[in-house]
Design a protein around this nucleic acid. Structure first.
Lengths: 340, 340
DNA sequence: CTGAAAGCGCTTACAG
DNA sequence: CTGAAAGCGCTTACAG
């Protein structure tokens, strides 16, 4: 069966003919157009015929006639998509689907030049996890896309959601409660996520200040070079005992390097990650971390998109990412001594 | 600037009017339709006007008129998308773009019911990383989609690409060369990837047989339950010294559990992963692994889709995933003794 | 070398 | 309560 016999499509006209009504009536029934008074028996016959013939509306024709594609394009940063992120996307997708929209996710190319997906899909709304560059916005507007979230110079919803910085504050508080007084921040050097790194750093720095601790020493960690090793030695020498990591990956990279450098985690240094991915539980030592509510984020993103697409009021005005602390092996009381 | 002024779209008619030619001529120039003899000066004027007016073809209208959406839908399994996978997708996307197609990736929902994306996007081709279920195929065919890769009962391209099992054989060979004679296989219990697990297991088992070793003992590892711990103790008791893991995640989960159970890796057990993700280098001990050519896979997938879409001959008939061994800390010579 | 025209399958005022 | 008709912006034979 390789033969690609494109059997003729079942159209609304076929249904109309089969039932003996006009094309328009079929459309009204199928779209449940309000304000039309169509007898129940006609409705039933149309619906029955549609099911019997296996009718599927032609999306392109609908889009052309209505001027709306009912596609929401979610632009993702070039991060690994883990299970938690996937869960978030799935919720967003389900929420949109419930309102007749499809969610398409898209990560723009870092290298080579390819036409951006918003050009070929004509989405009704483009929503970004992180803010868009000015050239991206220009490109979208050139395509006639006016519904863009966030607007230039606005913060991204994800940004806003994490802006409370509840998770980063929790990291600091946890180490503080364990008696750590000299803390450091292990950042990521990945240019793609610097804004988020800064956001978390600021929130952590804030909490450090309000607790009366001395400012966080900040170092960028990359598991592919010697930066983690250097940071570990430097902090150890500087009397740092607690390390707040940007996320679990950075926490793991740093912890691995520290152990290789002969330090003990949590004996010499306590390390706490962020996001509570599978890696946090798997790593040796397992990593204390911050769990965030990705499901809530997904629904929130969808709500924002729907609001923009249809002018619906937000049913969920405030997003609470619900950051909670997960304590594992990589952090412990500073006063428990320095043995593994 | 929240005002969503939908300024009227620039259409091909606008260009025609501006240049003083017919709509059709504009179309011919813009699409570089072969067989048309249009003067260079007319071409230039059309092109200039298109650029000046900021013309973008309306995708939906093109799709409706031509009967092709120029969208390829790649259905992804519900796995984490790591950098290597992303690289693969990026290559696929660039290759398709070069031929005027857009790649949309999609992971069907595991939970709740949402309309599948192939229904709302009308893709020309649907290509799956793993084989499709019969109901998925039925759903696609109901939408009038005839170009499906793989066809039911065919193997998926990814499957085929890894079917050579070169990587799994390399894992076994590596351990064998290090003097390990009793090997075990750490599988994944994730039902979503059982086919791939089986494929790798078979290839490993094959190589074990051809080397004259006794068959691999197989256990499923899940980092969330005690299975890794049990497997570690069991294998240790059974005299196993080398563990072939399905992938890096499983290798990490197993290694972590083994260390917590008081065993040494690689002192008591050598462990080798597969895929060479970032985790392999980051873990303590760092994990020996198998690197595969994801870029090649991406191009290969794109070629298959183009072939199906346009009847183009495959420019790359055979895919060589180019598996190579990456040796790190987690494997070492069995005869070096059992100390860390 | 270029244009007039039909048609893709819908939506949506508008008219009964 | 329902239908005839225009129109969305393209593609593509077909006719000059």
């Amino acid at each position: 069966m390789t033969k690609a016999t494109r059997r003729p499509r079942v159209t609304a006209a076929d249904i109309a003919r089969s039932v003996g009504v006009s094309r328009a009536t079929v459309g009204f029934v199928l779209n449940e157009t309000p304000g039309q008074t169509i007898s129940q028996s006609t409705r039933d016959r149309v619906l029955e015929a549609a099911a019997r013939l296996g009718y599927r509306p032609h999306t392109a024709a609908q889009a052309l006639a209505s001027g709306r594609s009912r596609v929401v394009l979610l632009v993702l940063p070039d991060w690994p998509v883990d299970y938690s992120m996937r869960r978030c996307l799935e919720e967003a997708s389900l929420t949109l689907d419930r309102h007749g929209y499809s969610l398409v996710t898209y990560t723009p190319h870092t290298s080579g030049r390819a036409r951006p997906l918003w050009e070929s899909l004509d989405p009704d709304v483009v929503i970004g996890f992180t803010p868009f560059g000015v050239d991206d916005v220009a490109s979208m507007e050139a395509c006639g896309i006016t519904k863009i979230i966030p607007r230039p110079a606005e913060q991204s919803p994800f940004w806003q959601a994490t802006a409370a910085g509840a998770g980063s504050a929790l990291q600091v508080e946890h180490l503080h409660e364990l008696g750590h007084r000299r803390l450091a921040f292990a950042a990521s050097g990945d240019p793609r996520i610097q804004m988020l790194v800064q956001e978390r750093l600021l929130a952590a720095q804030d909490r450090v200040g309000s607790l009366g601790l001395s400012p966080l020493d900040v170092r960028k960690i990359d598991h592919r070079d010697g930066s983690a090793d250097q940071a570990a030695r430097h902090w150890q020498g500087a009397g740092v005992t607690g390390v707040v990591a940007y996320n679990d990956d950075i926490a793991a990279a740093f912890t691995g390097a520290a152990i290789r450098a002969g330090l003990s985690v949590p004996g010499d240094l306590s390390v706490i990650g962020h996001d509570d991915g599978p890696l946090a539980a798997m790593f040796v030592p397992s990593l204390s971390s911050i769990r965030v509510d990705t499901v809530g984020l997904g629904v929130h993103l969808a709500e924002l998109a729907l609001q923009e697409a249809e002018g619906r009021p937000p049913s969920q005005p405030e997003l609470d990412m619900g950051a909670t602390l997960v304590v594992r092996e990589s952090t412990r009381d500073e006063r428990d001594g320095a043995n593994t």
